[in-house]
């Protein structure tokens, strides 16, 4: 039940963000410092989820760790191709391959 309330609150928060400036009908302009900060939100928030999964998922960080290697390879694919689906596909293939070898 509390999970439902959490989700509804998250939905309201998202809706309020999206409505913010539209709802204020142009009476308030976006502050330059706020706009500058927003550029870094997805990078910072998503990286905070990625690094622990790559480096701490199995308890200790070593280069032989499947998630770390698969994640680094996926990052290279993302860098070269900017293709999200290809990035996911390569990352999963490498993870499965390494798990199969172990």
């Amino acid at each position: 039940m509390s999970l439902w309330l959490t989700v509804i609150a998250a939905g309201i928060a998202t809706f309020v963000i999206r409505l913010s400036f539209i709802g204020m009908a142009g009476r308030i302009a976006i502050a330059p410092w706020f706009e500058r900060m927003l550029r870094f939100v997805p990078i910072a928030a998503l990286t905070a989820l990625v690094w622990p999964d790559l480096l701490l998922a199995s308890g200790a960080a070593t280069l032989g760790e499947p998630r770390l290697l698969a994640g680094l390879a996926a990052a290279c694919v993302a860098w070269q191709t900017r293709n999200t689906l290809l990035t996911i596909a390569v990352g999963m293939m490498i993870l499965w391959g390494m798990q199969w070898l172990q």
Binding site: I43, V50, A70, A74, T84, T87, I88, G91, W96
Partner: peptide, 18 residues
């Protein structure tokens, strides 16, 4: 280990922003 697909999706979003 499909949970890893979530992490890979985040990588695919973040890397092009660098």
């Amino acid at each position: 280990s499909l949970d890893f697909a979530g992490t890979l999706t985040f990588i695919a979003i973040v890397v092009p922003l660098l």
